[in-house]
């Protein structure tokens, strides 16, 4: 079919208009990618800000050490902290708190098989609200430890019964010891 002149002109105009619209779309994409670059730079500044925030908190290991040294009744202890290679695996074996929420943690636990129950665990999350929401997970840990000892070494149940959990700000803790009360006061002093 042969197009008349009018039709040909119309087609040319339509094609030209389409190309113009396409070029505007490309500009929009460029603008989008530059937005992403902006986002990355803002993310970078956020992580810098979060690293600075972290520095203002006392390391969990320091707090645990202060708690452990507040009494002389604890058996030989081993420490695992957030920076350790096996930290995540260890943490996930202890409790069901989502590890992605954890900013810092340290556990000091008995390695004396004659006195295996004692432990001190301190965790720092992002906020007081998160700490409050997750402290019940530490109560669940105490329940599990109690069941374990009831089945195998019931003579340690009195120690488990003195276990304590609580939170202060974004920190939460678990203490299993005959001297849990004294050790918890050491925590309070340490995070003031």
């Amino acid at each position: 079919m042969r197009l008349n002149e009018y039709t040909k002109k119309a087609l040319v105009l339509i094609t030209a208009a389409s190309m113009c619209i396409g070029s505007f779309t490309a500009c929009g994409s460029d603008k989008g990618s530059s937005d992403k670059k902006d986002n990355k730079s803002s993310e970078s500044s956020d992580s810098n800000k979060s690293a600075e925030d972290d520095k203002s908190y006392k390391p969990a290991k320091e707090i645990v050490e202060a708690m452990a040294s507040s009494v002389n009744t604890l058996p030989e202890l081993k420490y695992v902290e957030y920076a350790d290679e096996s930290a995540q695996d260890t943490f996930e074996s202890l409790c069901d708190i989502d590890y992605s929420l954890v900013k810092d943690f340290c556990i000091a636990y008995s390695i004396d098989t004659e006195s295996p129950a004692e432990e001190i665990l301190v965790i720092r999350l992002s906020s007081e609200e998160e700490a409050k929401e997750n402290v019940s997970m530490l109560d669940e840990r105490i329940d599990r430890r109690k069941k374990m000892f009831m089945n195998y070494k019931p003579e340690f149940i009195p120690i488990i019964n003195k276990a304590k959990t609580d939170y202060d700000g974004s920190y939460l803790y678990l203490i299993i010891s005959a001297d849990s009360e004294v050790i918890s006061r050491a925590f309070d002093n340490s995070v003031e």
Binding site: T90, L94, S110, I111, P116, A117, E119, M148, F149
Partner: peptide, 11 residues
């Protein structure tokens, strides 16, 4: 295995 009762078990 007495170590099984410790708070952190050797994996």
């Amino acid at each position: 295995d007495e170590g099984a009762l410790l708070a952190v078990v050797d994996p």
